[in-house]
Write a protein that binds this DNA or RNA. Sequence first.
DNA 1: GATGAATGAGCGTTCATTCAT
DNA 2: GATGAATGAACGCTCATTCAT
Lengths: 200, 200, 200, 200
Amino acid sequence: MTKRQENAKKTKLKLVKTALELFKDTGFYDINVEDITKKAGVSKGTFYTYFKRKEDIVLEISRAPFSEIAEELDLMKDKDIIEKLTYYFRRFMECVEFSGIHICRQWTRDVLDPNNVPENKDSQKWDYDFEMLRTILENAVLGKELKSDTPIELLTHIFICELYGMMTCWCMSDGKFEPLQWTEQFCNMQLENILKPYLT
Amino acid sequence: MTKRQENAKKTKLKLVKTALELFKDTGFYDINVEDITKKAGVSKGTFYTYFKRKEDIVLEISRAPFSEIAEELDLMKDKDIIEKLTYYFRRFMECVEFSGIHICRQWTRDVLDPNNVPENKDSQKWDYDFEMLRTILENAVLGKELKSDTPIELLTHIFICELYGMMTCWCMSDGKFEPLQWTEQFCNMQLENILKPYLT
Amino acid sequence: MTKRQENAKKTKLKLVKTALELFKDTGFYDINVEDITKKAGVSKGTFYTYFKRKEDIVLEISRAPFSEIAEELDLMKDKDIIEKLTYYFRRFMECVEFSGIHICRQWTRDVLDPNNVPENKDSQKWDYDFEMLRTILENAVLGKELKSDTPIELLTHIFICELYGMMTCWCMSDGKFEPLQWTEQFCNMQLENILKPYLT
Amino acid sequence: MTKRQENAKKTKLKLVKTALELFKDTGFYDINVEDITKKAGVSKGTFYTYFKRKEDIVLEISRAPFSEIAEELDLMKDKDIIEKLTYYFRRFMECVEFSGIHICRQWTRDVLDPNNVPENKDSQKWDYDFEMLRTILENAVLGKELKSDTPIELLTHIFICELYGMMTCWCMSDGKFEPLQWTEQFCNMQLENILKPYLT
DNA sequence: GATGAATGAGCGTTCATTCAT
DNA sequence: GATGAATGAACGCTCATTCAT
């Protein structure tokens, strides 16, 4: 990597980091490109060297934390499925909290709006999260932890529904709904209950 | 009611109905006030006779369908708690679907943004939904259907989390998540399971 | 005067009084017709029963206090010209202060803007004030207090210039220029000086 | 200065010049930003590259001519105080006439409205003019032209009151009051009279 | 005389994006 | 790769005024 490339990488990272900070406090629509570039110490035009549209930086911001979860799960191969799911749930909600309410909102928006990210369907959050959950369950079937007739599709839906439910409750309850505490409660109380029929 | 008042009511209704239609297709931020008034056949200024800000019409649109649910539940006094909740869940998701994805998004926004609906905290959707669910459960306790030590708060959280989860999945899955079918599945599969420990 | 006419008069008076209060605090352009009618307890339409345009109420507000001065001067026939002018100066500045800065501004505007009060040139403040000052001086000539070759036009200009100067200083100095105190100083110090060559 | 900076300067100058022309003919509130930019041959947005609010361009327009007076007075060190004041009075009124009635009005407004020019109190016209007059008088005291017990504050008030009086008369008399001719008359007739007691 | 719903022109301002330097 | 001046579409909202009731 040449020095120029290094600097470029640094600049982009600075922009992403700055944008996250600003969005967290104020929200996507109340922060404009100049706010970001000014705080990042670069010129307005530089933003467009790295992102085609303002919306694109949201993807960059959102993906990073969640992508780490996948890597972490890879290191838990010897843990059982309940532990893995519990871990995933907790980490997922941590990422949600970390990203902040305003970024959360932006997910709903980005994913849906057909004008946004049209060429890159993989980028859609629901698909991504759905896939990760399904993979966890499929691996458990392959690893003989879950029966081979486990309704994976159904369970994935139940779990994703739970996760998005907590996320939305957090967003909408104005602090009355505490996501991490609630995740724990769900995992302790219901996870085993739901999986029990399918455990080998 | 004088003729003038009648006309005024009609005009407002026309605006609300038109706005709902337009938001459903295109979304709140892609429809401007003039789009609404033009289609409703009134002048731009008339909009502001009835709504202080563009955002305010969303509240009007959102409240109506949900408020009907409460009335309907009053007519189900002889039904048991499972039936009531099943009914509520189904009707809630019907209202969600009826309101459309774009209005749903607006809820998250409205509820959160402290600049919106500030004078009327009761109007906040989460509080409203939370209260309705709690009331259903409390009545079941009063009616001796549920044990007196039922953790109402906890159950309310579980249910609201489920509802918002389904709503968000619907919003984010681009049609892959079918809310009404899913509601039924949840009610059949899990409702009884969750309530069983507390049924008398 | 029928009861209806009486009520009408009362309503108009109420409007004028209310408008003055509101303009004083906030200024002509920051107060709209509805602010006035609401505070006055009548409907918006009623305003237009009494005033053709929003601007017209300013004339109504402005004239009243100044027109009293003329009447008061009529009662001072036995006083000498210095006393009369001193009295006029003081009362003029009292009216300025009473009307408030925002109304003062409106004078400059109204008088000039050719779109305003075009049909009624007499209503223009400068002409009105000029005439009143000239009349005072002319009467002094007729009453042999001032020599017959007194340059009335010139003196009128000097005095009106002084009055408007104090008014503008008051408007622009943000409170640093105290108009009544200053009026007194001018009258004591300079009035006699200026008139001396012409006194009989 | 790079070519870009030069162009930017030119653009700003063009805007200021165009705005002055337009305001002169029609007045601040009857000219909108687009009128200015269109006539200046730039886009609407460009206006806001140089001025935060529409009002801000008035400051720019107003300051330039008056600031020249100070420089010119510096070149008159060998002239006596009467000559200096006469010069200042004439130049002040020339600037007033040059700026035009509509800009004059805007001064009263700018200086007063606490929402305008809040961060830069020095920019207030009254203070600025007051200071310049006082400096002229103080220098005359330092230069022993005026006695050391000259009531500078008082004289400054008298003169500023005269200047603003002429300005307002010009604004309000619809052409009946000729400012330059009047200035001369004042300087010839009264200036010496007023200063005489304090001349050494 | 009073009402207040309806009108609709009008405008300041924002801001994502482009592109010549 | 970086800059920042220029662009220009877009829009919410205000408000004086009218007029049918």
